[in-house]
Design a protein around this nucleic acid. Structure first.
Length: 808
RNA sequence: GCCGCUGUGGUGGAAUCGGUAGACACAGGGGACUUAAAAUCCCCCGGUAGCGAUACUGUACGGGUUCGAGUCCCGUCAGCGGCACCA
């Protein structure tokens, strides 16, 4: 009988649809396992070959967990708000909800075609009002705790599209869509106070089982630095405060720099003698994009503030003050002390403006470049009481001194900024707040949630970059829930990150209309035991969702401070030729084609066999055949298996070894070597012959990888009838360590570290026995002629190294 | 520039703690079966020399540690990912 994958896959998928073997049961007495994959964005193109990689891996992990007796939650959903759908809607005049529905239906059928063990009854869709009711609810709680606030801040503004762009939409300083210049524009935006959680987001990483590079990237993104805030007197009534990580270099300060956006600048308008010049610089800086300010314009520019002087408390001398756009308003205090001797940026600035450069740390040549000591054992000079100390000693000494003198205090800073949470877009969750002239920003009562996205005539932005919702005057004009007076609704919507920041909680209790998640469900399922996703989500999605989860922990909604106990990441699938798959390159592989040609089981197997899960791999249509061939070989074993239900003596060591290997490899996502071990086992079965008992073990091991063919074989070989269960419902096979070892080993025999021969000896033979055996070997005898044995090294069951030297 | 990762046959990739480099596949070559093709089965497959046994050589490059290095250490080069005037 031929392996008819199309008929077999259809048969079993229909069966699973009906008997729901993947249903998770909240409150079951079995141990729980919550395996999570990043839910997809349902794009119009459908699934591409990159999706099945993480999905299949976690499907295998969770299938094995079920067989090991766990009550498994392996859910799926759709992260469906977002720009591509909105843009498609604008272009084709179709409501985004209609497009979304269609795309989700398409994704669903594709995912089912691949035979994943998702609990489809728990499927969520972030654009469903029943879902985003709770996204809005979380926002309201953040607002009530003061963690959501509105502020004016610079945004990316496309001068041609006249709209606000997300950072991701700005590519090399121009608008991704039209290629026009992008400038910074002040706009009022909702912000979330993630920086208040910065330290906890760093600290709690320590106890998590995340792959190391994810932890490192998160820490770098949060960017903690320790230093001091120092306050300087000026010749105005204001004092200025700077942040520095190197208070030890205070004696080397020869000037100060203020950011063009700093409010003190405007305040000092009358005192600055060259205000016109300063104002022009200020204006010019405002019109520069971040890109120009950063990437292109390493060349330092600036204007001296005539009439403003600052006193260096360490030396008592006055130094001049400049405005320059190399100082950022958003980090530290927006004012920097210039230490040109020991900071390359300051050195460039000082060189350009002819400012003095003082050496305060010895060891470099400050006439050529700033000396930034690589280690902290360099010695301080020209620094009063610090002279002779190493940098390592000088930093704490100066910090202490600064505090004693009342010049400042120790300070920790983070690069992490608060989260810009508004989008002037239609296709997102409406922000459930109204603005009342009397009461200010007022939250909607929770009973009015969800605040449903209203129907609009056009999804285009207004000319001044406001959300399409702002044109809906009937919707915008409302009454204040607080005083009953006239009020306006917020017309900004939430970013796509919102719905994905908590979706894993909703899976635990997806149909609950009264709570985001019931206490019972959350305490049973939380936290997620294993979350796999892309490296590209390490800094944003992962950080955002950890932040929300910590907030939910603080207000008592969840019982753990962290959402995910374990995080792994998969590599990308590249197109033929090693390039990123993209429509424009025309190298996108659609999983449908592979499934039609070879079947879902082959697709699943191949995508796992293709290479190291964490690394990028190149897709090859040619190589898929190997996986299909393997399944054919498995199938054909049915014809040659002897009618004996016990494990054959000949295959026993291989079977136990393979069970061990596959068990361990699945747990560490090394599916490629697990499959290789299964292939080796099948090759041995062909070489040795096999019993039905041998085949039974193979089917159980193969089940998580290729569930359709396995169930069919399980039925045909009579095991389904024998046990009254599907293979996937059987206990995971166990191995006996003592049976994994063969009775004899082949050992390598080296002479002076070079392989010269191999010998076969009984397992666990003692050292003298193997040395004797090695010395008796013909090839070794030849090597030993005229030589003297001075040392032997024996590695049990593996290798013998004989150290010889010429005999005297 | 900074942080992180990776360099292994024609190709994808294996190789617990430092212990037989190239498992398992793909492609290729040879053979069997077949009227033929597909499929299937068997054999070969890093390089150089040799009919062969075998010898030398070989994990980006240069050093080092070690009885022994793909693996550890120092340096260099290349590629990928992230961040980037963060004081």
């Amino acid at each position: 009988m031929k392996y008819d994958f199309a008929a077999i896959e259809k048969k079993w998928q229909d069966k699973w649809e009906e008997c729901k073997p993947y249903a998770a049961e909240t409150g079951s007495s079995k141990p729980k396992f919550y395996g999570l994959i990043e839910f997809p964005y349902p794009s119009g193109q459908g699934l591409h070959v990159g999706h099945p990689r993480p999905f299949t891996a976690m499907d295998i992990v969770t299938r094995k967990k079920r067989m090991e007796g766990y009550n498994v939650l392996f859910p799926i959903g759709f992260d469906a708000f977002g720009l591509p759908t909105e843009n498609y809607a604008i272009k084709n005049h179709i409501h985004p909800a209609v497009v979304t529905k269609k795309n989700i239906a398409n994704f669903t059928s594709q995912l089912k075609m691949l035979g994943y063990g998702f609990d489809w009854d728990r499927c969520v869709d972030t654009t469903d009002p029943k879902y985003y009711k709770w996204t809005q609810w979380i926002f309201l709680q953040l607002f009530k705790k003061g963690l959501a606030y509105k502020t004016t801040m610079p945004v990316n503004w496309c001068t041609s599209c006249k709209c606000v762009l997300a950072n991701e939409e700005v590519v090399e300083g121009v608008c991704e869509r039209c290629g026009s210049e992008v400038i910074r524009k002040e706009k009022s935006q909702w912000m979330l106070g993630i920086t208040k959680y910065a330290q906890r987001l760093i600290d709690d990483l320590d106890d998590l089982d995340y792959i190391e590079r994810v932890k490192i990237q998160q820490k770098n993104w949060i960017g903690r630095s320790t230093g001091a805030e120092l306050t300087f007197d000026t010749n105005t009534e204001d004092r200025v405060t700077v942040y520095t990580t190197r208070p030890d270099t205070l004696f080397g300060v020869t000037y100060m720099v203020i950011s063009p956006e700093h409010p003190l600048l405007t305040k000092w308008q009358d005192k600055i003698k060259n205000w016109d010049e300063v104002d022009v610089y200020k204006e010019a800086a405002a019109h520069k994009s971040d890109f120009e300010r950063g990437e292109l314009n390493k060349d330092k520019t600036g204007v001296r503030l005539e009439g403003i002087e600052v006193v260096n408390p360490a030396t008592g001398k006055t130094v001049p003050m400049f405005v320059s756009d190399y100082v950022l308003m958003g980090y530290g205090t927006g004012i920097v002390m210039g230490v040109p001797g020991h900071d390359q940026r300051d050195w460039e600035f000082a060189t350009k403006f002819g400012l003095p450069i003082i050496e305060v740390v010895s060891g470099g040549d400050i006439t050529k470049e700033a000396f930034v000591a690589k280690d902290d054992s360099a010695v301080m000079v020209n620094s009063g009481f610090l002279n002779g100390l190493t940098v390592r000693e000088a930093i704490p000494a100066m910090k202490k001194y600064v505090v004693e003198q009342g010049w400042g205090q120790e300070k920790v800073n983070y690069k992490l900024r608060d989260w810009v949470f508004s989008r002037q877009r239609y296709w997102g969750e409406p922000i459930p707040l109204v603005n009342c002239e009397k009461c200010g920003w007022v939250p909607l009562p929770e009973s009015e949630l969800p605040l449903v996205l209203p129907q609009v005539d056009s999804y285009e932005l207004t000319d001044d970059g406001e959300s399409p919702l702002s044109k809906m005057t009937d919707w915008v004009n409302t009454t204040c829930p607080c005083c009953g007076g006239p009020a306006k609704r917020e017309t900004d919507t939430m970013p796509q990150w919102a719905g994905s920041s908590w979706y894993f909680l909703r899976y635990m209790d997806p149909h609950n209309d009264n709570e985001l998640v019931s206490k019972e469900a959350e305490e049973y399922w939380g936290p997620v035991d294993w979350y796999n996703g892309g490296m590209e989500h390490t800094t944003l999605h992962l950080l955002y969702s950890r932040f929300w989860h910590k907030f939910l922990y603080d207000i008592g909604v969840v019982h753990t401070p962290e959402p995910y106990a374990k995080r792994t990441s998969h590599g990308m699938i590249l197109g033929e030729g090693g390039e990123k798959m993209s429509k424009s390159r025309g190298n996108v592989v659609n999983p449908n084609d592979i499934v039609n040609q070879y079947g879902a089981d082959t697709m699943r197997l191949h995508i796992m066999f293709i290479g190291d899960f964490e690394k990028a791999v190149t897709w090859s249509n040619e190589a898929v055949k190997g996986s299909k061939r393997f399944l054919d070989r498995c199938w054909n074993l049915m014809d040659i298996a002897k009618d004996d239900l016990s494990i054959s003596e000949k295959n026993e060591p291989t079977i136990h070894k393979t069970i061990k290997k596959v068990t361990e490899d699945i747990d560490s996502l090394k599916m490629n070597t697990a499959i290789a071990a299964l292939m080796t086992m099948v090759n041995e079965f062909y070489a040795n012959g096999l019993t039905k008992g041998d085949l039974e073990q193979l089917m159980l091991l193969l089940s998580p990888f290729a569930p359709h063919i396995t169930e069919e074989m399980w039925e045909l070989t009579g095991f389904a009838a024998k046990y009254g269960k599907m293979a996937m419902q059987m206990p995971w096979p166990k191995y006996d360590e003592t049976k994994t070892v063969a009775s004899h080993h082949e050992m390598a025999v080296q002479v002076n570290g070079k392989l010269r021969s191999t010998i076969v000896v009984p397992a666990d033979a003692d050292d003298q026995t193997v040395i004797d055996a090695a010395c008796a070997d013909e090839k070794i005898k030849r090597q030993m002629e005229g030589m003297q044995l001075i040392k032997t090294i024996v590695v049990k069951n593996k290798l013998i190294n004989l150290i010889l030297k010429p005999a005297k």
